[in-house]
Amino acid sequence: MPPKKQLSRRQLNSPFANLIEAMVEAKSKEDEMTGFTPLWEVFVQPKGALAHKHCGSVHAADAEQALQAARDVYARREEVRSIWVVPSAQIIASEPEAAGMLFDPASDKIYRHPSFYDIPDDIENM
């Protein structure tokens, strides 16, 4: 039994390794024009301590090249503090059809907003 840390690394890496392997395999079967380089989603953190925000995607063979491409494509005007790249195939997204089920329950819970509560005007600092 390998140490726990190593196991979790392997779990993290193996789907990606399989993905690349599958892509290379698919590529060797296709003619040259249709061989393809994996897609990565790019998230940039602007200067000023804002959260990382999705800004687009790049194609790259591996993580290092994805970061380099993201730098060239999405950070040409020094407005960026940090970049994340994530293999697009690893993004788990909610289905558009599920939007109502997932998000509508929030819309009738106005008591979650501060303005729901009546406080006299002469109460300060609240």
């Binding site: 392997e21 290379v24 061989g35 591996d62």
Partner: peptide
């Protein structure tokens, strides 16, 4: 493009 993919596959393996 081919070399980059081959390098990535080798590293992943």
């Amino acid at each position: 493009r081919e070399a980059a993919l081959a390098h990535a596959a080798k590293k992943a393996a």
